[in-house]
């Protein structure tokens, strides 16, 4: 996992980008746990979101899961090709499998998220 990534306890990652934006995705651990993805619903561009709010849903075989924004802000871009190419999530969860780009209200909010080391410890502590 790249050092610039931060993680939410709900398994989303976020990466600061140029221009005050941040890219959000789902961790490889979470994607692997979902298995056999069949449908995804992403938020609309322009939506104002609050940290911890559900911004979309994904269905794997028989299970619907929410995903959450790690920071508050505005959704400025959505990976519109992803719902039609869900296998990308499994192949490249930290790259081409990104979900949304957000303009954070307060970039410092990312400081409160987990770094890669802390996230790996969280994953190891999860019930199996």
């Amino acid at each position: 996992m790249a050092a610039e990534l931060k993680f939410a306890k709900t398994h989303e990652w976020i990466r600061p980008e140029a221009g005050g934006l941040a890219t959000v995705g789902i961790s490889a651990y979470a994607v692997e746990a979902l298995t056999d993805l069949v449908f995804m619903q992403l938020p609309n561009v322009g939506r104002k979101v609050k940290a911890g709010e559900s911004i979309g849903e994904i269905e794997s075989v028989k299970a619907v899961s929410d995903f959450y924004t790690p920071v508050s802000g505005e959704v400025v871009e959505v990976n519109t090709s992803l719902p039609n190419e869900l296998e990308t999530l499994g192949k490249d969860p930290f790259g081409a499998g990104w979900l949304v780009r957000i303009r954070p209200d307060d970039p410092a909010e990312m400081d409160g998220l987990l770094d890669a080391t802390a996230y790996e410890a969280l994953v190891k502590s999860q019930p199996h």
């Binding site: 746990a33 979902l34 794997s60 075989v61 028989k62 299970a63 619907v64 019930p127």
Partner: peptide, 29 residues
């Protein structure tokens, strides 16, 4: 709210179980 296919209820027994994510049943689906 759950996934899966359509069910015709009325001649079945339906259950719902809810589990905290921290419970041993809350990890691997």
């Amino acid at each position: 709210p759950s996934g899966g296919g359509a069910i015709i209820h009325g001649s079945d027994v339906t259950y719902a179980v809810a589990v905290p994510r921290s419970h041993a049943w809350g990890g691997d689906p």
